[in-house]
């Protein structure tokens, strides 16, 4: 293991990790059929929840402080932003461990976590350029979605969603590392996706949950992935609340990265045993 953990200069580092980003981008480009099918998948998700909420609101005007229009916007924008922040670095990590390619990454003079993050960013870059726009177009044509509360809210929503990418990558990286301990972690990855969908507030706003649960989820990183950005988009956060939300997201970016580094430290020992 090389001791040169960090790049010599910022520019040097940028070029190196930028390359991982570029490769990820091109890999995504290669799977055209998956791309088209991915767009359809998002439309299916938005449709299910659109009809479900529409049926739920058939007698009431507002439920838990949201009217139907806000709810439809919440769900649609939630899935649209997911189409951007989602990445598969957990699955790639698992495959690398299984095939043994991870050994090649270990001998390179790069930081493993930053390399995985660069891949995640590459995927998100692909998504924002080619994947998210068609989803935006189709969903806005199919469903009645409101625009952002104001240009300021839009700006902070974009910033906040970018932070979601980093938090999501941080969680994905850490969970992906578990593949070093278990033979098949597809079940864990699947559960992780389900848990994030629920606890990030993607399926249902977190303020619909019982109060005790809201207090509990305030201490988890998941709400920073979807619930906070969506609250910003809908204009439910202003002034100090907005600043607080963004700072909380920054805090989670740092914490998830640090946890990832810690787990990686533990994993390095485990890898040595496996190779023996």
């Amino acid at each position: 293991m090389s001791t040169r953990r960090f790049p010599d200069s910022v520019i040097d580092g940028f070029i190196k990790y930028n390359e991982y980003m570029r490769i990820s981008f091109h890999k995504m480009l290669a799977y055209r059929v998956s791309y088209l099918i991915g767009v359809i998948t998002y439309i299916i998700h938005v449709s299910v929840y659109y009809f479900l909420y529409k049926a739920l609101y058939h007698q009431s005007h507002t439920i838990n402080g949201y009217d139907l229009q806000q709810m439809v916007t919440y769900v649609a924008i939630g899935w649209i932003s997911k189409s951007f922040y989602l990445n598969y670095i957990d699955r790639e990590l698992t495959e690398e461990v299984k095939s043994g390619h991870v050994a090649m990454d270990l001998i390179k003079p790069i930081d493993f976590q930053l390399m995985c993050f660069a891949r995640g960013l590459g995927q998100s870059l692909f998504r924002i350029v080619l994947f998210t726009p068609p989803i935006i177009i189709v969903t806005t044509c199919m469903f009645p979605i409101s625009g952002p509360a104001s240009p300021v809210h839009m700006f902070f929503f974009i910033l906040s969603t970018f932070l979601s990418v980093l938090i999501y990558s941080g969680i994905n990286y850490t969970i992906g590392l578990l593949s070093i301990f278990f033979l098949s972690i597809s079940g864990i990855l699947y559960s992780k996706n389900m848990i994030i969908e629920l606890l990030s507030g993607l399926l249902i706003p977190l303020d619909w949950f019982p109060l005790w649960f809201q207090k509990f989820s305030a201490f988890l990183p998941f709400q920073a992935i979807a619930f906070l950005p969506l609250k910003i988009y809908l204009g439910r956060l202003d002034g100090s609340g907005l600043v607080y939300a963004i700072s909380l997201q920054f805090l989670w970016v740092i914490i998830t990265m640090l946890i990832g580094r810690l787990v990686w430290k533990i994993c390095q020992r485990q890898i040595l045993i496996q190779g023996g």
């Binding site: 739920l56 058939h58 009431s60 699947y190 389900m194 848990i195 629920l198 399926l203 619909w208 949950f209």
Partner: peptide
């Protein structure tokens, strides 16, 4: 994970109907 999978949708339905008297 199999058990967890079922639990998630169960929680979702429970929260969806948290307010009394709602129907789909």
């Amino acid at each position: 994970t199999g058990l967890l999978f079922q639990l998630i949708t169960l929680v979702f339905i429970d929260v969806l109907f948290a307010k009394q008297g709602l129907t789909i």
